[in-house]
Amino acid sequence: MIREQTIIDGCTDTPASVSVYDRSRRRLLITGIRAFWGLITAALGVPAAHYLLSTPKSRVADEWAGIGDAAMLPAGRPVEVVFHRNGADAWKKTEEKLTAWVTRGLDSKVLAFGPRCTHLGCAHHWDDTQRQFVCPCHNSRFSIAGDVVAGPASRPLDRYQVKLESGKVFIGKLTRSDQIL
């Protein structure tokens, strides 16, 4: 333990004769050094951690992309719709090209599904003869409502937020189905 202490104090050859005053002064200096460096480390470290880990404030409101009149959509048969939407990737303004499978139900409710299978992200498509969404990769199948019918996929198809304004369909953010309220 004696050896440990001398090493921490950084001096192995302190003469045994040093006075009590010198010893306590030495201890005070060492405490001071540690305290100052502790403060500096905290003052730099905490903001740095915040800077690196906090989610940047988003300034871009979710944009809604208009895809046309709801009446143009065939009832009960999903169609593939390609649309453009402005977005932001950090400081860059982007124009994304996106795909949705849009369905107008018999109750006139419009659903828009994301184009990727929820299993491994392959592009699925609507098979009109089987009346299912079919993924060519591992044969996952989804109903017209997006629910898993067969195959390895574990959750329903992702859905875009959809709103109808005076008969026109607008598509918003893509969300996981289990997160749509």
Partner: peptide, 16 residues
Amino acid sequence: NSVRYILIEMTGGKLV
């Protein structure tokens, strides 16, 4: 734009 991103969007960006 990236400098403004640091200043406006990043937490602590102005400080850094």
